[in-house]
Design a protein around this nucleic acid. Structure first.
Lengths: 210, 210
DNA sequence: ATTATTATTAACCATTTAGTCAGTTAATCG
DNA sequence: CGATTAACTGACTAAATGGTTAATAATAAT
């Protein structure tokens, strides 16, 4: 055995346990909220003794932070970058598609993030907030240029981003309500495509991009 | 003093205390979640001893139910009814306006409702869910008729309702994030009007109603 | 005024919960 | 192998929490 493989193995136990814990924690935090999720309930779901959880994470807050951090990273990766050269139509399409797919593929992450914001973003670090402000400003500037060039209708770019954000996120956060209303037990593959098509259709037309 | 006034007075203490408690509870439930909001914290916020809270509400769950019930009633009143005879343009405008105003005027109610749904609607009675399904179906049927009559673009009516729902609710639920991004401390009157105008503009155009 | 009802609250209790610790077992390494 | 480090865990504790109770004060009814 090379030392590389050995190294991998040592890290593996730790890594595997942490993934197990974080997965369980994510579910518990969604179902019960931060305070409602107990270290014991996370342990039960992860099928590990409580003390083991606290061996890998100093305390409950650390678990939550790790979950939150992971969510932010995923969002960052998942969101396709809106580029200036692609034009408004492709940009909006890509943005909608990326966000819808994330909503359907990782509803729990979206939910945790939503709850965090709803409760006042008490655990969200300042850099995360600042980062988002920068992101929105930057993208809004792009939209504004397209508007100024007459490439799309004159709609407020910041609110447009809010609109796309909310409409896409909704399918994750309000999963329960949507399934109830649609009288379904679960979403299916085609639902994702249908939502993407619907949102692209109506929002692009709303932006005068047809 | 007539007996009516006396009756009023007896009920007054109860009513006043209950309002005080429910107002405090609403805030606590938003800030800390169901489990995180303690009877003590609600008492502190209401400036009443804890035992007094439990004199008016048997237990914490009852407080929460009362808060939730109040929210549903308000939603029911606040939402202007979409009528068949007004046509799609007015219907959508009215719907958007009603929901945006509710979001800005009662963000806490919206937030509590959102959290409840995100967590799986564990406390929401079946009748509330069924009621909403009925409501959406009914309104979707109206939209479908308008589409069939060629009065608006062929967009999925159910998803259209989801879109309006999410876009409007967003300003309540994600208040924190939106204020951060807009670099503001609070919303102002003109923000409400601007949001209504923006959403009507883009969604109506999206529905081919310009 | 006297009685009855409603409102109020301090003190208390059983349970839950986050976190600690000391001791054990398993993996890794020279 | 022997030693070192990492992984694991049962048992415990202090604090917090939901809820009860019993006793007192205020209000209303007769």
């Amino acid at each position: 055995m090379t030392s590389e493989i050995l190294e991998k193995k040592t890290g593996n136990i730790r890594a595997k346990s942490q993934v197990k814990i974080l997965t369980a924690a994510r579910t518990e935090f969604v179902l019960q909220g931060y305070r409602g999720a107990t270290v014991q309930s996370i342990a039960d779901r992860a099928e590990l003794p409580k003390a083991n959880i606290l061996y890998y994470f100093k305390n409950k807050e650390n678990i939550y932070h790790a979950v939150l951090e992971h969510t932010l990273e995923m969002w960052d990766e998942g969101i396709g970058d809106i580029e200036a050269d692609q034009g408004p139509k492709v940009a909006i399409e890509k943005f909608i598609e990326a966000k819808v797919r994330m909503s359907f593929n990782h509803p729990e992450s979206s939910k945790i993030y939503a709850m965090e914001i709803i409760q006042g973003a008490q655990h969200l670090k300042d850099y995360a907030r600042t980062y988002q402000r920068q992101w929105v400003r930057e993208k809004a500037k792009l939209f504004q240029q397209w508007i100024d060039n007459g490439e799309m209708a004159n709609v407020d770019p910041v609110h447009l981003i809010f609109l796309i954000w909310s409409a896409t996120q909704h399918y994750a956060d309000f999963e329960t309500q949507i399934l109830t209303i649609m009288n379904r037990a679960d979403f299916e593959e085609e639902d994702v495509e249908q939502v993407i098509a619907f949102l692209c259709d109506i929002i692009l037309r709303g932006c005068g991009l047809t």
